[in-house]
Simulated scan of single mutants.
Amino acid sequence: MDSSSEASSMAQGLRIVRLVADREKWGRRLLGVSQLASELDMEQSRVSRLTQELCDLGLLERVERGPFRTGPRFFDLAASLNTGWVRESRTELEALVATLSLRSRVSVREAFRVILLRASSNDALPGGFVKPGMVTPIWCTGSGRALLWDHEQVAIQDLLKDVNFIGVGGPGAAHSALEVCELMDRDRARGFTLAAEEFEHGVYELALPIRNREGTILASLSVLGNRSEIEPRAGKIAKVLTESADRLGSRDHRRGDSTGGAGLAS
């Protein structure tokens, strides 16, 4: 299986786990294979294979071919994530909302995709599509390109070599790995990532990496708004984000783990 197929399977598996967890959380009827396939618009055979793998990993469980529910490993992972800087990120995100009046997010990398780890209360609304586990492209989001901050041009081109850029993102999105590298060079020169309508029309996302004490990138911290909210005060926003990212990074005490416990980057 090539890297793009592995990434696709990972993303689809995360969608299944997220749907099962959400239905449990809100007390809704639990689903079997056919219902999951229908809800997620996926082939039933693929859902059957992925749910079996997720059960084998302990992320899901199923009793006597009944509906799926979250498994013991899911709760182990959730507990491990809700420590240190990840736990503290909730407070930091709400502080950013109070200071900047903008939506804010913490995200991590999984191959050439970005996975939302946590969003501020004004961004993650009940019933909305913005929720933990949401997957977006790494090349056309501010949060994603902040996660590529330390990548050299060759590494970026290798990471994105199998990506189909056509039809993805907003009017400002890059259409090749070389264009992504050019955007990265521009961003590094000014000290922050700014994605201007790269993923969604009308949305500007300013982001910075969160680093641990050894300098390894753990995640990205970003704020989102429209052009008038972001562009005229980009320098001030970057300063506030830098202080917030530094506080979060200083609370991570693990070594040799580039995801800060999320286990998703590769």
Score class of each variant (00 low, 15 high):
N82H: 13
N82K: 13
N82W: 13
T83D: 00
T83K: 13
T83N: 04
T83L: 10
G84C: 06
G84S: 14
W85K: 09
V86C: 11
R87E: 09
R87D: 06
R87Y: 10
E88H: 11
E88T: 02
S89H: 08
R90M: 07
T91L: 06
T91A: 15
T91F: 05
L93P: 07
L93A: 10
E94V: 00
A95H: 04
A95D: 15
L96Y: 05
L96F: 03
V97C: 12
A98Q: 14
A98Y: 02
T99R: 11
L100N: 01
L100Q: 03
S101Q: 14
L102T: 04
L102I: 05
L102Y: 01
R103W: 01
S104P: 03
R105V: 14
R105I: 05
R105L: 13
R105Y: 11
V106H: 04
S107L: 08
V108F: 09
V108T: 14
R109L: 13
R109C: 02
E110N: 15
E110R: 14
E110W: 10
E110C: 15
A111W: 14
A111P: 00
F112L: 06
R113H: 13
R113W: 04
R113G: 06
I115C: 09
I115T: 09
I115V: 15
L116C: 11
L116G: 11
L117M: 14
R118G: 05
R118H: 09
A119N: 06
A119I: 03
A119V: 02
S120C: 06
S121F: 01
S121P: 02
N122V: 05
N122A: 02
N122I: 02
N122M: 00
N122D: 12
D123W: 08
D123S: 13
A124I: 00
A124H: 03
L125C: 00
L125W: 05
P126Y: 11
G127Y: 08
G127P: 04
V130E: 09
K131Q: 15
P132M: 08
P132R: 12
G133Q: 08
G133V: 11
G133W: 10
M134V: 11
M134I: 03
P137D: 06
P137M: 12
I138R: 00
I138P: 00
W139I: 03
W139D: 11
C140F: 05
C140E: 07
C140T: 13
T141D: 05
T141M: 03
T141F: 09
T141I: 05
G142H: 10
G142D: 07
G142V: 02
G142N: 06
S143T: 12
G144L: 12
G144N: 13
G144W: 13
A146Y: 14
A146C: 06
A146D: 08
L147H: 05
L147N: 10
L147D: 06
L147A: 05
L148V: 08
L148Y: 01
L148A: 03
L148D: 00
W149M: 06
W149S: 04
D150M: 07
D150P: 00
D150N: 10
D150E: 13
H151V: 01
H151L: 15
H151N: 08
H151S: 12
H151D: 12
E152K: 05
E152G: 14
Q153A: 15
Q153F: 06
Q153I: 10
Q153D: 15
V154Q: 14
V154A: 15
A155Y: 00
A155I: 02
